[in-house]
Amino acid sequence: MTDRTKWANSEDGSFKRQASTFRDTISPSHSVFKPAKGRYWLYVSLACPWAHRTLITRALKGLTSVIGVSVVHWHMDTQGWRFLPYEESTKGEYKSPYGFSGVPGETHSNPTSGIRNDSVRPGVDGTIDHNYHYKRISELYYKANPDYSARFTVPVLWDLETQTIVNNESSEIIRIFNSGVFDEFADPKVEPIDLLPSDLESQIDEINSWVYDNVNNGVYKSGFAESQEVYEKQVSNVFEHVQKLENILRVNYERAVDKYGEKDAASKLFLLNEQLTEADVRLYPTIVRFDPVYVQHFKCNLSTVRGGFKHLDLWLRNLYWNNDAFHETTNFDHIKLHYTRSHPRVNPLGITPLGPDPVILPF
């Protein structure tokens, strides 16, 4: 996710996303970045969908005690992402089972009343930088490369040994986590899962390609459009591809009903082969944000997921309620406050809508 001072809009008013810069990997054969417990650290925003997918994968793979996490404040100002001040840190912060160093994944009935953009609630608004006590994510980038001149994005996968960034491209970070290089250190209580099985890899890649451009990034191209013509084109494209997802899930659901009965069909509802894959992980952060944020804030309001896409909504509810790795990594306070308070060009008054309520329907 970009800081708002670095939006890359073209002359026609369309939003252009800049490519990530650090693109290394971790493997036993790598000359520098070799797998080890406690060597690597993940810097994230709980609001950012790109960072969210890395948190989900880290949890699914049982790596919460292997790779640490620091969480930036939900409000992004003109200087980008910031941490809570070190002097405001507290001992004995709440510890989520998924290792958020104090940031619970709960939502509240009225999370915005009286909350200032500069609020400092340890373990609620974010965390300190646990490693260097930096104030800004930008300081990590300059530590890795003093001449760095691009955006200061999250997620960041950091190497504590060489004190540099391994990778800041979320799609590659989740493949590093899934690759098996950390499996020997993983929590044995977490059931092993391969999110990229070889027999489904080509299908996963195909889904990821059009979901990324038209849905994950499509909502941004709609929300950051700077002309009516561009906006209408982009929002229509988003819903065309959301409908495509709905069609896939409808077929999968009907097949599951025939196989398992209506009572159990929804719990088998995934994008491919009745099994959780990387395709689901990459889609979820966008869809879970769709009704609470993108409908209003990014003007993706031709329909809600809940009201217009029955099977996509069932898929979302299945992941959210039936898998802690999704539920516990979803923080609606951060999501809603970040988007509505951090983009004054989109929402000048910074008013945060209260709905929908409940955010995700019961399963």
Rank of each mutant, 00 (worst) to 15 (best):
E11R: 13
S89C: 04
W321D: 02
S20H: 13
V235G: 01
E274V: 10
T162E: 03
V69T: 14
T127R: 12
D258S: 11
F22G: 02
T107D: 08
L249W: 10
A186K: 01
D291C: 02
I335C: 09
R39C: 03
G99K: 08
V211E: 14
R58W: 11
T78A: 14
L46R: 14
T164V: 02
T54R: 08
V181I: 05
S222M: 04
E240L: 06
K259W: 00
S171W: 06
I26M: 00
R317Q: 08
P292H: 07
T107I: 06
D77I: 07
V251S: 12
G38I: 00
R17F: 15
S303Q: 10
I287L: 14
Y253K: 07
K268N: 08
F224C: 09
L157A: 03
E226F: 10
E161G: 00
T25K: 04
P155F: 10
S171M: 07
V281Y: 13
I204A: 06
G308M: 04
T25W: 11
H343T: 08
R58H: 03
A150D: 15
W321H: 15
P104G: 06
R175D: 10
L42T: 00
F332T: 03
R151L: 02
P353Q: 05
E226D: 12
P356T: 07
F363D: 11
G62S: 10
I287N: 09
L283S: 13
L195W: 14
E161A: 09
T5Y: 12
D324H: 07
L316A: 03
Y86H: 12
F298C: 08
T112C: 09
G68I: 05
Y132P: 00
F290P: 01
I26G: 01
V219N: 11
V44Q: 02
A51D: 09
G114L: 08
F326E: 05
N131A: 00
H108K: 11
L361G: 02
E232D: 06
V154Y: 13
N252A: 01
E88V: 07
P285S: 06
Y320D: 01
N237M: 09
L245F: 02
L249H: 06
A186T: 00
E184R: 10
Y220C: 04
V32D: 01
N237G: 05
N322R: 11
P358N: 01
I287R: 07
N117S: 12
Y98L: 13
F332R: 07
L269C: 04
I67Y: 07
D258A: 10
Q275C: 06
I248R: 05
E226N: 13
Y43R: 02
A265L: 12
G123W: 05
L314E: 12
T153D: 03
W41C: 00
L160K: 15
E206R: 12
R121H: 13
V190I: 11
S342E: 10
V120F: 09
F185P: 00
L271F: 14
D205E: 15
H334W: 09
P85I: 05
F309S: 02
N247M: 08
N117L: 10
R345I: 12
N301V: 06
F290C: 01
P49W: 14
G38K: 04
A150F: 12
W74M: 08
P35S: 04
E184W: 01
K143I: 00
S342F: 09
R121Q: 11
H327W: 07
Q234L: 03
V215C: 11
R289L: 14
G308S: 04
E229P: 02
G99E: 08
H338E: 15
